[in-house]
Structure formats: structure tokens, C-alpha cells
């Protein structure tokens, strides 16, 4: 109750942003704290509620994403404690293991043009999984991140049926040794969280970090509402598209080169 929700009015947040940017620009020493936060877009105080001022997104440049590189996938499994598909140390069959992100290889049926790209929860603006969820466990945060509140998930799997991107998974067996920051458990639906636990601490998602440091740097993360952000710039300057854009789900994950 000490942490009464703090309602941002748009004006306040805007002001905060301007002030922050100015301060960050002026104070060199500040960058020690602001470093990662700045890179991730806007800083959010740990106890501040998310607001629709921000819209987190990832831009994937399929042109840069090499076939065979799985840095993003490996990082995700590592971070989230998804052992199954990597280690095969569980009971589940391979087609029962969760994969929050996967590398999909494409080949154009007519031209033979081949490319590869990662697919994960697309964090839709109009997410079908949220619409169909009977208990409201599937929900979208104010900043556009689509999550499963696993405390109210009854495991009906309707969200998995509804997802156009095959991005929701169902946990088929008891899980042990979860990462403390990423609880997961049998009988509930789960999927990419865009690493909310990192974003809320001003860090980038694990896949994006790995893509830059071990992969080809094909992923850009940021606040698409912030015109100054790298992602907003790239979205402005390039032709980008979304998977199954025809469905009108308006994903937060966008692609270049497909």
C-alpha cells in the first residue's frame, strides 16, 4: 500500500522525458546509472506503473539474420530456464517442449529466395490471445507487452489456438529449478515476455543482447513511441512489415526484408 499506483498524466511523463534526456545529456557521471536504461529507451522508476506512453517493440532485420545462427534462441532458453528443447532432460517429446522463440527458415516457393528469421510472441496491439482468454489471464500491459498472468491461467489452451503466430506454449510437465526471476509451471500457458523482468530494470531483452554480442546484430529493441529511439528511426527510414499483417493485429515485433 506504500506503493500506491502512480498515475502518469501524458503531460507529466512527457516532461519527465524531456527533463531526463536533458539531464542525461548534461551529466556525464549520470550515464553510469543511465547507461542501460537509456539504451532501452526511457527509464522507468522501479515502482512506477507502466504507461501507454511507451510502446516496446523489436525490429528484426531478416536481411542480416544468417541461416543457422541461433544466438537469440539460445539466449532466451538460457535466460528463461527453458531446458527441454536444448537438453532433452525431461519427459516431454520434442513437440511438447516450449519454445518461446524459434528460428524459421523460409524459401520462396516461386523464386527460391531463402531467408531466416526469429519468430516469437509478436506482442500485438490487438492480441487474439487476450481476446479469447476466458479468465483474463492473457493480457496486454499498458506498454504493449503481452503476457500470461499465470496466477489466473486455468490451462484451457484457447490462447494457443487463437495465436496466429504459433507463439504460445503449454507447459506439459512439472518444471524444476526455475530461474528465480522467471517462474514457470505445469499446466499453464506461457510465451515470450519480451523479458519484462529486464525491461522494467532498464535492460534489453536477452535475445536482442545476444543478437548483438554473439549474432549478427539483426535485432533492434526500443520504444517505438519515442521518436528519438533507434528503433523509431529505423522504422521511419525503412520499409518494414509484420507477419500476417493482413490480420490487423498490429504486432510490436516488426520485420525488415520479408
Amino acid at each position: 500500500m506504500t506503493e500506491a499506483p502512480h498515475n502518469d498524466t501524458p503531460a507529466l511523463a512527457d516532461e519527465a522525458r524531456r527533463r531526463f534526456l536533458k539531464r542525461a545529456g548534461l551529466t556525464a557521471g549520470f550515464s553510469l546509472f543511465a547507461g542501460s536504461a537509456l539504451a532501452a529507451g526511457l527509464p522507468k522508476a522501479l515502482d512506477e506503473a507502466t504507461s501507454s506512453e511507451r510502446r516496446w517493440g523489436i525490429l528484426v532485420d531478416a536481411g542480416k539474420c544468417p541461416e543457422g545462427c541461433t544466438a537469440c534462441v539460445d539466449a532466451c532458453f538460457e535466460e528463461m530456464g527453458i531446458e527441454g528443447p536444448r537438453v532433452g532432460d525431461n519427459h516431454s517429446r520434442p513437440d511438447q517442449d516450449s519454445q518461446w522463440i524459434r528460428k524459421v527458415s523460409l524459401k520462396n516457393e516461386d523464386t527460391g529466395h531463402a531467408l531466416a528469421l526469429p519468430v516469437m510472441c509478436q506482442h500485438c496491439t490487438y492480441p487474439p490471445c487476450v481476446d479469447v482468454c476466458p479468465t483474463g489471464a492473457s493480457f496486454k500491459r499498458a506498454d504493449g507487452i503481452v503476457l500470461v498472468d499465470r496466477h489466473v491461467c486455468i490451462g484451457c489452451r484457447y490462447c494457443i489456438m487463437a495465436c496466429p503466430y504459433k507463439a504460445r506454449c503449454f507447459v506439459h510437465e512439472a518444471i524444476h529449478d526455475q530461474e528465480p526471476y522467471m517462474p514457470r509451471g505445469k499446466g499453464t500457458a506461457e510465451g515470450c515476455t519480451m523479458c519484462v523482468h529486464r525491461i522494467d530494470h532498464g535492460m534489453k531483452p536477452a535475445c536482442v543482447v545476444a543478437c548483438h554480442e554473439e549474432g549478427a546484430g539483426a535485432m533492434t529493441f526500443g520504444d517505438t513511441n519515442d521518436p528519438e529511439s533507434a528503433i523509431a528511426g529505423k522504422l521511419r527510414d525503412n520499409t518494414t512489415s509484420a507477419i500476417r499483417a493482413d490480420l490487423g493485429t498490429e504486432p510490436g515485433i516488426r520485420y525488415m526484408g520479408i
Binding site: R102, K103, V104, S105, L106, K107, N108, E109, D110, V119, P164, Y165, K166, I243, R244, I258
Partner: peptide, 9 residues
């Protein structure tokens, strides 16, 4: 997910 493409993953 990708009409017109052969896909695998």
C-alpha cells in the same frame, strides 16, 4: 505465417 513460402523450424 508466411504465405508463398516453404517454411521449416
Amino acid at each position: 505465417l508466411f504465405p508463398g513460402y516453404e517454411v521449416s523450424s
